[in-house]
């Protein structure tokens, strides 16, 4: 109990590439950190550039956008995404 619990890592299948990421970070932050080539711009859930299509798995959306934005979405399970 005195140690910070290590969060389990989840797998993101992004455009066919697999990345192991932390569920504490947004999908965008995680993918950028792993060097994935993801389209994005403002980073604050506004411009819509990091929109993705969820193929499998569950995500937790923050913010008011109806789109799935990588900059304001967190993975809840292993997920499969596509960005055109």
């Amino acid at each position: 109990m005195f140690f910070k619990r290590k969060s389990k890592s989840l797998a993101i299948d992004f455009n066919g590439e697999i990345y192991n990421v932390s569920p504490q970070k947004t999908i965008l932050e995680s993918l950028l950190k792993k060097g994935a080539s993801i389209k994005y711009n403002c980073g604050s859930g506004t411009c819509g550039q990091c929109t993705f299509h969820l193929i499998e798995g569950a995500i937790n959306k923050k913010g008011t956008s109806s789109k799935s934005l990588a900059c304001s979405t967190y993975p809840l399970t292993d997920i499969k995404l596509i960005q055109y």
């Binding site: 711009n41 403002c42 604050s44 506004t46 411009c47 819509g48 550039q49």
Partner: peptide, 11 residues
């Protein structure tokens, strides 16, 4: 934020 992120940063 609207002017900058939604318009200035959108392609």
């Amino acid at each position: 934020q609207h002017d900058h992120c939604q318009i200035h940063h959108a392609p």
